[in-house]
Nucleic acid binder design. Structure first.
Length: 629
RNA sequence: GGUCCGGUAGCUCAGUUGAAUAGAGCAACUGCCUUCUAAGCAGUAGGUCAUUGGUUUGAAUCCAAUCCGGAUCACCA
């Protein structure tokens, strides 16, 4: 029989227990989280210590007031209560209350706390091994570990949202990996998620590609050239810019100013004409527009498939760009907007410290913000979301602020649920990527290069010589995308990052393949032997075993943290730390040849649970793990 | 100029709801494959946490000022 475990949170029923928390982290956006209380040791410790402090010192404390952290490696213990807060608030002596609390806690729950020690204001507790063994035995075979029960909170995550005039580049990849991962993290923690994509399929940019195609293609198509559709169309966008540049130079040579030359360039005038024809519904123009967009979509789909991105709903700007006009009428009637003499319509955001903002041009056409207003409404009508997350680069911080503010002023109930997941741009050592100057790192090219690197490394190591071609291709793909996705997701989204194409993405250290490798190693053991029988509770834990277990136990709260902060790098860092802990354990202790049956059962379970958690963590980042590599 | 974001080891980054001697990876150097996969492990070296002042028992973290870098403030999207 298992020893008694001293709180209700460890009972079987507690597995179903849920708690809804409100988390405010940095921004005012409210997020509801569900935490499975069963596994959270920290929570249990707080509960016990709160009671102990109340009983032994007659001080009422809330759990929020207690600061519990993992004990630093150089001190003895597992978890530490930091006493300074209590000491300050109640003007107490840390030596005295530390001793009192430590003693009382160990006496009250001897099956939970093994011992305590006091160093300055830090009260360190060691936990009884069997608490952790119990956790391990209950969890190791559970592939659902980390998953929260479903609840009714609906969230929409919009990401990718490309223009249709050029192929996806490295910046899109950061956006896509981020958006996809956040959506999966939300799902894992019980949210009902809709992944959406807004395709900017109309406007001057696509007309540029169209005009260049008309002028220079001589009827060529992706089919006749064998080129991927998005690249094909992107090439004409580049050709437009080359032609435009030449015409500008000619204009300047003829005595025009730069601005005049840009505007008056024949190819630019033709492009504007094309846009007007498009808006007027010119059949021929629409046919070409449809045809070229179709080429692009085929290209995008191939890339999405390759990187494992998917969407539940796609909005096309051509179908939604007029929606916002209703808003403008509404806002005019209730006085939120006002009309200037020339007929243009504005909103005054100066009371909020922003500027006056145009919402409708004097010719009655809508601007960028107008479209987004309409689309927000459309999304809400269709999905009744409580939160709507926009994964958009930080250059649009102002735009998103304005969008939310206008919706608030219009009293839209969904305004407060709008959240801009703002991420930093990916730059090159030479600075920003510029598609006009051809300095972008193309997504497809980059993936191809990564696959080559994966192939070279794998061949060099020669560990999978028995793999057939198909298995090898699959492995290279898994490793290449693992390296790339991890590279882009391991850093805080809001920080801009520099990508150096010269230094290829690593396969060692803090990387995807390092973690994949750890997983493959574990699988190699589990193929030989999978844990059976029962786990003897008299096992004494080695230092490395305990470290691993304490880390594994934190997994659900790591996921909550990632969701609350909207930050997959939290999961990436965790997965890396976990893999490192395992590798350290692995080199010091043999699993198959453990000193006893009891120990072997323990270590097999540790290996199995580590593999599960690694697999789940990586899956939430969109990264697959191989059984062998 | 207004607003916002950032500055931590040679490089890339963690740590920023204040807490023990500021941590990883890469690069450099030293060890470890006859034993479950060395894409690994163990170790050495590397820091004025941009600067200055303040709050505090305690500051990379909070406040103020300054310096540097970036974004944005379009009848572009």
């Amino acid at each position: 029989m298992n020893p008694r475990i001293p709180t209700a949170t460890f009972s079987n029923n507690a597995f179903m227990e849920r708690k809804v928390l409100e988390t405010f982290k940095k921004d005012k956006w409210v997020l509801y989280l569900c935490a499975d209380l069963i596994m959270l040791l920290q929570h249990t410790i707080k509960k016990i210590l709160g009671q102990v402090i109340h009983d032994s010192l007659s001080i009422p404390v809330t759990e929020e007031e207690l600061l519990i952290q993992r004990t630093k490696a150089e001190f003895e213990g597992d978890y530490t209560l930091v006493l300074f807060g209590l000491v300050k608030k109640h003007k107490l002596n840390p030596e005295q209350i530390g001793a009192t609390i430590g003693l009382a806690a160990c006496q009250k729950e001897p099956n939970f706390f093994k011992s305590y020690n006091l160093v300055k204001g830090f009260l360190n507790f060691s936990l009884q091994d069997h608490c952790l063994l119990n956790f391990l035995d209950n969890t190791y075979g559970n592939s659902q570990y980390g998953k929260a029960l479903a609840h009714e909170k609906r969230v929409m995550v919009e990401y990718s949202s490309p223009n249709t005039n050029k192929p996806l580049h490295l910046g899109h990849l950061r956006n896509i990996f981020l958006g996809w991962s956040i959506a999966e993290l939300l799902k894992e923690r019980g949210f009902a998620v809709t992944k959406s994509c807004v395709v900017n399929d109309r406007g001057i940019h696509i007309c540029k590609s169209m005009i260049a195609w008309q002028l220079f293609a001589e009827g060529a198509t992706p089919a006749t050239t064998g080129q991927k559709g998005d690249h094909f169309v992107g090439d004409y966008y580049v050709k437009f810019n080359e032609a435009h540049k030449a015409e500008i130079e000619a204009g300047i040579a003829a005595g025009l100013t730069k601005e005049q030359a840009e505007k008056e360039a024949p190819i630019m005038k033709a492009t504007q004409q094309l846009l007007q024809d498009w808006e007027a519904g010119n059949q021929e123009v629409l046919a070409l527009w449809n045809r070229m967009n179709q080429w692009v979509y085929e290209g995008f789909d191939a890339t999405y498939k390759k990187i494992g991105a998917d969407f539940d709903k796609t909005y096309y700007e051509s179908q939604t760009y007029l929606l916002g006009k209703k808003f403008v009428e509404q806002g005019l009637t209730n006085g939120v907007f006002y009309k200037k003499e020339d007929g243009s319509i504005w909103i005054d955001l100066t009371p909020e410290g922003l500027d006056e903002k145009l919402v409708l041009r004097k010719d009655g056409t809508s601007v960028y913000i107008t479209q987004d207003l309409g689309l927000a409404e459309q999304k809400f009508q269709e999905y009744r979301y409580e939160q709507s997350i926009y994964v958009i680069a930080d250059e649009q911080n102002y735009h998103m602020k304005v969008l939310q503010l206008i919706l608030q002023k219009l009293n839209k109930p969904y305004a407060k649920g709008i959240h801009h997941l703002s991420y930093g741009m990916v730059e090159l050592p030479s600075g920003k990527m510029k598609s006009r100057e051809g300095t972008v790192v193309d997504a497809d090219d980059l993936i191809t290069e990564m696959i080559e690197v994966a192939r070279a490394k794998t061949e060099e190591l020669g560990k999978v010589k028995d793999f057939n071609t198909e298995e090898l291709e699959k492995l290279y793909h898994t490793l290449a995308l693992g390296a790339l996705k991890f590279y882009l997701l391991r850093v805080d989204p809001k920080k801009k990052m520099v990508f150096n194409p010269q230094e290829s993405i690593d396969f060692q250290g803090f990387t995807g393949p390092f973690i994949q490798y750890t997983y493959a190693r574990i699988q190699s053991i589990l193929r030989k032997e999978y844990p059976t029988a029962t786990l003897p509770m008299e096992n004494k834990l080695e230092k490395e075993e305990k470290e691993l277990l304490l880390s594994l136990e934190q997994f659900p709260s790591i996921l909550d943290q990632a969701v609350a902060e909207q930050n997959p790098s939290v999961v990436a860092t965790y997965a890396f730390t976990l893999a490192k802990l395992f590798n350290s354990f692995y080199t010091q202790h043999s699993i198959i040849s453990a000193p006893s049956d009891a120990s072997r059962q323990l270590r097999l379970r540790l290996a199995a649970l580590t593999a599960n958690v690694i697999k789940k963590s990586m899956a939430l980042l969109g990264i697959e793990v191989p059984n062998r590599m």
